[in-house]
Amino acid sequence: MSATTSPANIILSKPTKNERIPPSNLGYFRARNKNRVYEIVITEFENSGLTQAELAIRLGKGRDRVCRLLGAPGNWTLDTVSDLLFAISGAELDYSISKPFETAQRNQRTPEWLTEHQPDVAESPGTSGGLRVNVYSSEAA
């Protein structure tokens, strides 16, 4: 019996000339961007050994507010990221561009124990750029 992979949920594709990008594509990359920067900030926070209370003092905000900020990147702005990273360790973001559609296809797309799979339409190639973000700490500089 062949298993069914999700056949037609989000179709990500390379932006092409004179063609409107599907709104879902924009939404996908917005969420991906936030989640990636969230991981950087939280990892930096956990590595710092700071408590939320200490971070709240550094930022001049209430502990509840800092707790909410660290819970999810939902309403983060670039300023929020800048404030958090600098307050945590004197760090800042370093920016570069990557193109996720040009990345090599991973071999494993479903659990190995799932039997035969149908091709996933989301695998179609494209060249939308993605933002790779590194973090540098001024303490290490």
Binding site: P100, R106, H117, A122
Partner: peptide, 18 residues
């Protein structure tokens, strides 16, 4: 999944590790 009552959600981008 074989019956089409459940779907495996594959990563939408090629480089995402499962």
């Amino acid at each position: 999944c074989g019956e089409g009552r459940l779907y495996s959600l594959e990563p939408a981008l090629p480089g995402i590790r499962l």
